[in-house]
């Protein structure tokens, strides 16, 4: 399912003394099967964009097209449920939304809200719990007896069990230790590859964006500052640094080498392996001089 934002504007508390413009003139295309990363500082408007992806917010101007559904400021929307089933959102610290007595019930909650039968929901729960790397025994436990990392995974399973076409992730690894972070991101990446699941990752982490995404959108002060493939984005790291944004370590290192050696690599390396090869061949060439 394709999603596209067309010149979207959103004002919080419109027409009150507290009105505040959050995003303006935001146009983003998310064709089916993409892995898109949205990057920006806190307050850059990326969370507001995220909430438009399944009509949690309605634009105050412009329009959002989700599949065959159009969401605009003046149209009364019915059947948003259908949209919400197709676009699953994993919010930041999703473990805060757990509430049921057992893990299984909590995972089944979403699917059953969308009219799935109990048997089907339970079947999906079994699949989802394995997908997030937990064992089936955990299904009968209370979510509140689990560790923080396990709760996070259960909450993610709850969204996966809705079997959405698009999954939106808001800082899914915040607060986890390095291994937890890597496991979660690898899992989403695998889902994206195996099931062609469209994925939108909202993050601060340039590392994750460059590693997993095939398209990147950079938000700044409520507007789209730049968009393109990771190669395009990181070819001019100076721009990003000027905004006070990080660049991936690999890119930063390549830049340092290029500055010191007064040379330019033929490409922007996005993985350590690529960079190692480039440096190794450079040194061999350099040694001959």
């Amino acid at each position: 399912m394709d999603i596209s934002l067309q010149k979207v504007e959103y004002r919080y508390q419109a027409k009150t003394p507290f009105e505040r413009l959050a995003i303006k003139d935001v146009s983003i295309n998310i064709p089916s099967g993409t892995f898109l990363a949205i990057i920006g500082h806190t307050g850059s408007g990326k969370s507001t964009v995220l909430q438009h992806l399944n009509a949690l917010l309605k634009p105050t101007a412009g329009k959002v097209v989700i599949g065959d559904k159009e969401v605009t400021a003046d149209k009364k929307q019915k059947n948003l449920k259908e949209v919400r089933q197709k676009v699953g959102i994993v919010f930041q610290f999703p473990e805060h939304q757990l509430f049921e007595e057992t893990v299984e019930k909590d995972i089944c909650f979403g699917p059953m809200n969308f009219g799935v039968t109990m048997e089907e929901a339970q079947r999906r729960a079994k699949v989802a719990i394995k997908q997030v790397g937990l064992s089936e025994e955990i299904l009968s436990k209370s979510p509140f007896d689990l560790s923080g990392g396990q709760m996070r995974r259960v909450a993610i399973a709850g969204v996966l069990a809705m079997e959405p076409d698009v999954i939106v992730l808001d800082e899914p690894t915040a607060g986890l230790d390095p291994r937890g972070r890597k496991e979660i991101m690898d899992m989403f990446h695998a889902l994206h590859i195996e099931r062609k699941l469209s994925t939108v990752l909202v993050t601060h982490s340039m590392e994750d964006a460059s590693k997993y995404a095939d398209h990147i959108v950079i938000m700044q002060n409520g507007e789209v500052y730049k968009k393109g493939t990771p190669e395009e984005i990181f070819t001019s790291p100076e721009d990003l640094m000027q905004l006070g944004l990080d660049v991936p370590e690999v890119v930063r290192f390549q830049q340092k080498i290029e500055e010191t050696f007064h040379i330019k690599f033929s490409q922007t390396c996005l993985t350590v392996e690529m960079l190692t090869k480039e440096i190794a061949s450079l040194l061999k060439g350099g040694g001959q001089k």
Binding site: I257, E273, T276, I279, A280, L282, L283, G286
Partner: peptide, 28 residues
């Protein structure tokens, strides 16, 4: 990784600056 590729380094470096400097002075 560089060592694996046959680039000899005196040690593992903790800072990017030091590593760049080593590559520059001892190899290039």
């Amino acid at each position: 990784l560089l060592k694996e590729q046959g680039v000899s380094l005196s040690r593992h470096f903790l800072s990017e600056e030091e590593l760049v400097a080593e590559l520059w002075t001892s190899h290039y």
